[in-house]
């Protein structure tokens, strides 16, 4: 806790942590929004969510190693993951959509392990990242530094978010997805091909994760086995924000990003992952406690 004193004596560090946290949190928002989408539309909790993020990172890394600027990785990773998502839906997910929730949790857990091991075999277990080559911005007499790539990442998230809102409002597919989320049976009766809607939703979610992964590899690092942390972050954000409210998802994601930065600074970076998982337990318990007063439980 020695670092607490640093924070108290030099409050400017808090600004640094806050900015870093908010910028990182905006990336979490992408994956979390995808998870809320799947949960709301297909009633599936996707444990492999974080592994799509990491996979998106590796796609970008591959481009980078081939000499292409990693920012191009954002659309490319989204496209590749869209195809991967579609394939996974066709191979596995469509069989578990209407079944017991635990079956889908476990099936996606299996996919998660599969993807992790494949990435480990193909890309190796080392921690890697892609250098964007963009510089830093200095604020407050150089006491606070913000890397430009993080700002670019933030901008990308904003653009994707606006595009998503428009997609759901205006496009036919977007409307069909919303209709299916409200009542799949009624949607089927109205002539909506819900199977196609589900495939589209799952692929779209994977694409969002892919884009997030491209941003992660530029602003942070990736490694085959850290996907689960992104899954848990997404889940936590959705539990706090609720389904289908993009503004709440973004707010919760930014909050989580900031909380993590502070926790990592105060407890030590080696406890950051532990903090994420511990926070999950705490959030669920607290939510359940409040529900119990209403004679209800989280289920």
């Amino acid at each position: 806790m020695g670092n607490l004193e640093i924070l108290l004596q030099a409050p400017i560090f808090s600004v640094q942590l806050l900015i870093d946290g908010l910028l990182v949190g905006s990336i979490f928002a992408l994956a979390a929004y995808g998870m809320a989408l799947l949960w709301g539309v297909m009633n599936i909790i996707n444990i492999s969510q974080g592994d799509y993020v990491i996979l998106g990172g590796y796609v970008t890394l591959t481009l980078y190693n081939a000499g292409i600027h990693p920012l191009f990785g954002v659309p490319v990773a989204a496209l590749v993951l869209f195809i991967v998502g579609w394939a996974i839906y066709r191979a596995v997910i469509f069989r578990v959509v209407d079944r017991d929730l635990f079956i889908s949790i476990l099936a996606t857990f299996g996919i998660s392990i599969l993807l992790q091991q494949l990435m480990d075999q193909i890309f190796g277990a080392d921690i890697q990242s892609a250098e964007s080559g963009l510089g830093q911005i200095f604020l407050f007499d150089s006491q606070v530094t913000v890397s430009q790539i993080k700002l670019v990442a933030f901008a990308v998230v904003v653009v994707v978010g606006v595009a998503l809102v428009l997609f759901f409002k205006k496009s036919r597919m977007g409307q069909a997805i919303r209709a299916t989320a409200q009542n799949a049976r009624a949607a089927r009766l109205m002539g909506i091909n819900t199977d196609r809607v589900y495939a589209m939703t799952f692929a779209l979610n994977a694409a969002l994760c892919g884009a997030a992964g491209a941003l992660v590899v530029m602003t942070w690092v990736i490694q085959p086995f850290i996907g689960l942390a992104y899954t848990i972050r997404s889940f936590m954000i959705v539990v706090v924000a609720g389904l289908g409210n993009i503004a709440a998802v973004v707010a919760a994601a930014l909050g989580l990003g900031a909380a993590e930065q502070f926790a990592a600074f105060l407890l030590g970076a080696e406890f950051q992952i532990g903090f994420v998982f511990g926070l999950l337990v705490v959030i669920l318990l607290v939510r359940n406690m409040f529900l119990k007063r209403q004679r209800q439980v989280l289920k």
């Binding site: 949790i105 532990g274 999950l280 337990v281 669920l284």
Partner: peptide, 26 residues
């Protein structure tokens, strides 16, 4: 934790297991 139901319980215990490992590592 046993007050949670269904997938909330599943994912909460998942978090618990990993948090315990991280704690032991430190």
């Amino acid at each position: 934790i046993l007050g949670l139901r269904g997938h909330y319980f599943a994912i909460c215990t998942l978090g618990l297991g990993i948090a315990a490992g991280e704690l032991a590592s430190g």
